[in-house]
Structures are given as structure tokens and as C-alpha cells.
Design a protein around this nucleic acid. Structure first.
Lengths: 161, 161
DNA sequence: ACAATTCGGATATTGAATATCCGCTATAGC
DNA sequence: GCTATAGCGGATATTCAATATCCGAATTGT
């Protein structure tokens, strides 16, 4: 079980877009160049983010993407679910119903005990992701990144918006 | 991102094996019939459990599988990792290194801030699965399953060991 | 000893999901 | 209005999971 690499790209793109000056747009081409990933495929991830209302895109020259909400209002979970979907990682196929001892007339009531445990773990995972916002990430990066690199990135982004 | 259906099968098989009388073995054929899944493919999951030291198999007539440890010593995480592997769900490709602003002479130190958040969530998921043992599952099932069904299953299993 | 039965591993085949690419349409500025 | 530039959606290859099949090795009961 592995997350799509688009999840990683979407998170990094969201982090960069959080630093775009208000009212400006950063084109997908720039985001792809910045991260060194194929532009055509990255577009898919950005489109998924747009459908989820996390970013918004605009056509034409001077077009591109920007965050649709303040960074504090966007969690890791929002981004991950926009790309991966909202389905649980565990799909219960209800194989207990195939049990030859069970009477088809009395189907089991309530969700399977095994599925419940798996879904609880899934919830714990989501809760952790929901607890961290893009603003939190920005604060962490601001504290960790060398000032020189941070300014370099800001200039690079400003140059393409 | 979705877990393999073999995970579900492995968990259900473990639950059944926890009810096998001590010293006896239940063949894979019976487990496949009980759950209504293809026997040849289920064998793969059982072999993975055997490699992980969760179950042990024995050849010949009256052979089959049984738990290799007491149910209280086997967690959901043990079973899931035996089938899915121990790798994190999030693979960091270090795309921050492709950043055109970063100097290749000064590579970033420590893990990426985004990966750290993802890995923390992954740990929370694993912690939840590690907290539930097969003994816990057995207690839940004993409390929820109708007595008639429980006895029927026990008889069905005893008949094939 | 023999034969039936079981796990173990290796090997195809199918089908879905992933990664990738390309053409279409719409916008903004000259 | 024209042109260059951008996002959008559909079409394509490639990878991987899911399934079936086979044979070999080991073991138990007759």
C-alpha cells in the first residue's frame, strides 16, 4: 500500500503556492520546473486540487494557480484526500457472509469487528493529517530553511507570477 | 491508496486459526472454503504469515496451519505488515533537491518537513493497529456473535482439524 | 513401504490502476 | 481582433495487483 507520488507533489505545490503574493497566479509550468517533475502529469494533481476547492486556476497569460483559501484553513488531509480520494484504506468485502455456517436468513448486523479496527486506525491517520495546516508547515519551513534559500525561493516565485 | 484484499483475508484467517484446538492444524483448503475465496491465492497470504512467524504450517494429511504464538501476542499490525510489508505509506522522493534555487553544494539536512508530517500520521495508524491483538478480537467476537453461530463455527472447524 | 495429502515456491495470464502524453478551449494583453 | 499562453479533459502506455496453474518436497496414516 503506497500513496501516489502525486500526493507528495500536491503537498509541495501547496507549500509553494502559500508563498505566492496575494492576487497573483503561479503557472503549473513553473511549479513543475521548480520541483523537477513532469508538467503534464503534475497538472492532473493540480486539477484535483482545483476540483476540491483548495486551489483555483485562471487561463491565459499571467494565469496559473493560487490557493483558494488562507493557508491556515487548508490541512494536509484536505490535500491528501483531494488527490487520493476520501475512501478508507481498508475495503471490507464482507467475506464473513460467505461463511458456510451462517444462515443467509440471518445476515450479520452492524459492521464486521475486523473492519471496525481497521477503520479506527484509518481515522487516527486522518486525524493526524487534519491537525496540521499549510500555515503550520509554513512556520516550520520558515524556522528550518536557511534565510538565503528562503529569499531565493521567494524571488524565484515572484519572478514568475 | 488501498490495502490489498489479502490483508482482509489474512485477518479473518487469523481469527479462525485462533479458535483451532491446541495441537491441531487447519488446512488452507478449509480456510478458503470457509471464507469463499480462491484457495491458490489465499495460500500466498498464508505463506506470508508463515514467513513472518505468525502462523506455522505442517505438511501431509492432518496438516495445515495454526497460530505460531498465543493470540494475545499477535497484533493487527503484525498481520497487516506481514502481508503489506513494513514500508511507510508515504515515500519521500526528496523532490526538494530539484529546487533550482538550492545549491547542490549545501544539501538539505534532516528529513523533509512534509515527509515528517506524513510519517507521523503513518505512525499513528500503526500504533492503533498494534494496540489490538487477536485475543481482543476474539473477545469482541465472543460477545457479539450469536451463540448458535459461534458453536456452529467451532464444530465446523473441529471437523476439519 | 506406499499413497494420499499438504505446504512451498515458481510461473503465466488477466485486468485494473497508475503514470504519461497530446490536442482543445478559453483568457489576457498588444 | 489576433496571437501567445494558460488550464482542462480525453487518449495512451506501462506498471502492478489479482488470479489460476503447475510441480516439487515433506509428512502422516494405511
Amino acid at each position: 500500500m503506497q500513496l501516489r507520488n502525486q500526493v507528495e507533489w500536491a503537498l509541495h505545490c501547496s507549500a509553494v503556492l502559500a508563498g505566492v503574493p496575494p492576487g497573483r497566479f503561479l503557472p503549473a509550468r513553473a511549479l513543475a520546473e521548480f520541483h523537477g517533475v513532469p508538467q503534464a502529469y503534475l497538472s492532473k494533481a493540480l486539477q484535483a486540487l482545483a476540483r476540491a476547492g483548495i486551489v483555483e486556476g485562471t487561463l491565459g497569460p499571467a494565469g496559473g494557480y493560487r490557493l483558494a483559501k488562507p493557508p491556515a484553513a487548508i490541512s494536509f488531509l484536505d490535500v491528501v484526500e483531494a488527490v487520493e480520494g476520501r475512501a478508507s484504506t481498508f475495503a471490507c468485502a464482507e467475506i464473513r457472509r460467505n461463511n458456510p455456517c451462517a444462515s443467509p436468513a440471518h445476515p450479520p448486523t452492524g459492521p464486521c469487528a475486523i473492519a471496525r479496527v481497521m477503520w479506527e486506525a484509518d481515522e487516527a491517520w486522518r486525524a493526524r493529517l487534519a491537525a496540521v495546516s499549510l500555515a503550520d508547515l509554513g512556520a516550520t519551513l520558515a524556522a528550518e530553511l536557511p534565510a538565503e534559500l528562503r529569499d531565493g525561493i521567494a524571488a524565484w516565485v515572484a519572478d514568475r507570477t
